[in-house]
Design a protein around this nucleic acid. Sequence first.
DNA 1: GCTTTCAAACTGTGATCGCAGGAGTCGCGA
DNA 2: TCGCGACTCCTGCGATCACAGTTTGAAAGC
Lengths: 230, 230
Amino acid sequence: MPESEVLVGSAAPDEEPPMHASIYEELRRRLITGKVVPGVGLSTRGLALELGVSQMPVRDALSRLSAEGAVVIRSKRKIEVPPMTRDRFADLLDCRLLLEPVAAMAALPHIDTETLAQLRRIDADLDRAIETGDVIAYMECNSAFHFGLYRASGRTTLNRLIETLWLQFGPFMRTVYSDYGAAKLIDQHRLALDAIEVGDGEALRRAIASDIADGMGLIGHRGLESDIVT
Amino acid sequence: MPESEVLVGSAAPDEEPPMHASIYEELRRRLITGKVVPGVGLSTRGLALELGVSQMPVRDALSRLSAEGAVVIRSKRKIEVPPMTRDRFADLLDCRLLLEPVAAMAALPHIDTETLAQLRRIDADLDRAIETGDVIAYMECNSAFHFGLYRASGRTTLNRLIETLWLQFGPFMRTVYSDYGAAKLIDQHRLALDAIEVGDGEALRRAIASDIADGMGLIGHRGLESDIVT
DNA sequence: GCTTTCAAACTGTGATCGCAGGAGTCGCGA
DNA sequence: TCGCGACTCCTGCGATCACAGTTTGAAAGC
């Protein structure tokens, strides 16, 4: 099971999900890890051709993603990952700061030694991604870490909201990290891991909040030289 | 323009939206105002027949609503508004308390006398709904009031998250208010309106938080006698 | 009256097609 | 060289159909 799997699973266990669900997963992964960037145009036929399926499952997947604000269907011939603006970025950042520290605190009582060990492994992978300057790998590890932590909370509604935020900022942050240089990124998760180890909920909340404010906040604003960023 | 219109509009202005968007609006309204209740089964063909359209636009609309957690597609022959559970209810309530007071505070600087007058009119209509014991009208006015307030914030991302929460708890609260009796409901918006009048952000935040905690919190928990409610 | 089995009905899903509209490209004239 | 208009291409969307699977209801047996 990939660690950056959907934060809130919807497929019934032991069942093969419908094709549109698999395609949704694939597109979601691309968005969260920045494999698609803002301004990129998408089309149901183009994606169907690329993924070797018909239009229908792609349509269903794109309907879901549009409901989650990840893509915008502007008109005929224009589905796109919306460009980021200063206002929208600030809105996204603020929403993350409202929700994710709470999810982390709620997760704390449920994090056993196996879960903590897994988070440490993910963080070690993230460190390697920073060392090699691999932005995509960094983003994969980053989402795996956060989702692995929040999932332990069992807060399905909260986690679902969090995931829609990640769908929306992933593409933009990918371009920002690429411009910034992955080698310059800093692993902000040590404080969070330490807080988990000693069971300090308030320290965990602060660590997650500062991870978000520093990681996405400071670097993200640098990426917003003008109102529109592609 | 109906006051309980979608909190975050997506159709381009001056353009006729695609049929699936209109159907999404209609289903959204039914969920938020409780015209459909938990446990009710839906089907694409059934809704298409009722609404006089083909299956495709209904499918697209249901894909969006499923992405927003408003309906769940469990299997062949089983789309439903999920029954409420105690855990899910607590999760929803907590998320509302995290997001809506912030949206209200963010809205405050942007509320002119015309917007305040409109909110007062909506609140007067809500009072009449309480007097006549009309639960559906009460829920329509309640969402119109909150959305009218939050929309002024301009916080599109935040408002979108809030709307998905309303889609999820609307059906359940409708049954709760019906059992409770609409005539026993209390207008909790006076404090909010007063806080807006004097420009007191902190008072507005507290008023919205207590509106949510009292209105949905206390009454909602009464509706959850067991883990599963239809 | 209850349980089990089977058949029918209904469903979500995937596929395909056609339409109308918008985007993109190219050519021509100033 | 630039702008505008015409034309082409590609698209989202709506409609329809078929399939496989699930649910429902009826009938038979105990």
